[in-house]
Simulated assay, not measured.
Amino acid sequence: MALAADFPYRTRRSSDLSKHSAEVFAEAENHTIMITRRDGEPLVLMSRREADGRARLLDFAAHLITATIDSDGTFAERLTKAFPWMLALSPADREACAQDLLDAARASFSTEQPHLVLSELTSWKETATAVATGLGNADLQWLDDDETVERP
């Protein structure tokens, strides 16, 4: 995983921030900006969305590490302690969820893209919520492949 110092920030001078603030702010909505200063350590300017994503990623990482170092039960069982909503899933789905979250976490950590694991976490949580409300219990009637349905 890349170190924070290796992260490819876009760099602007502090004078750019004072002279062209609208331009710098617009750029910061899309990319993290490192503001260099002659008289101090560089500062980082990013959107609230990006800062919140990083905070949620760190929170998820804390839960993941806790589940990893616990020694009681399978990894999926340990992960349900951190995410009790997983109990709404079947045992097989809990295993799939745990593996999907672990894979997405590895991708997020290695690419510094929090949305990869956060979207996976949200998808599984929404699935568990749907199962808990009984949406998975209905008998479905599947249409044949050659059957067409008119648009409403």
Rank of each mutant, 00 (worst) to 15 (best):
A55K: 06
K125C: 06
T36I: 05
K19M: 13
A22Q: 14
S123N: 15
A55N: 10
A128E: 01
T68Q: 07
H115T: 15
L118C: 12
L135I: 08
R106Q: 12
A105F: 14
T66R: 08
D139I: 13
D100C: 06
T122G: 12
V131P: 03
A104R: 09
D103S: 09
D52A: 14
A22D: 14
A2K: 15
S110M: 11
D103R: 11
D93P: 05
D70C: 02
P114T: 07
S71D: 14
L102F: 14
R49K: 04
L87W: 05
L102P: 01
A76N: 05
W124N: 05
D146M: 12
H115Q: 15
G134C: 08
Q99S: 13
D52W: 09
E27D: 14
A128Y: 06
G53P: 00
S71W: 03
F83K: 00
T36Q: 05
V44M: 08
E120H: 03
P84R: 08
V149F: 01
E29K: 08
H115R: 09
P84Y: 06
S108N: 01
S15Q: 15
A28S: 15
S47R: 03
F60D: 00
F83D: 02
V149W: 08
T36D: 03
G53Y: 01
Q113P: 03
A98Q: 02
M86F: 14
E23D: 14
T133W: 04
A61Y: 02
D93T: 04
R37W: 04
A28I: 04
E150C: 13
R54E: 10
A67K: 04
R38T: 02
S21E: 08
R151Y: 09
S21F: 09
S21A: 10
S71E: 13
T32F: 00
P114E: 10
T129R: 12
A62C: 06
E150W: 02
D146V: 15
Q141R: 12
C97M: 12
T129M: 10
R54H: 06
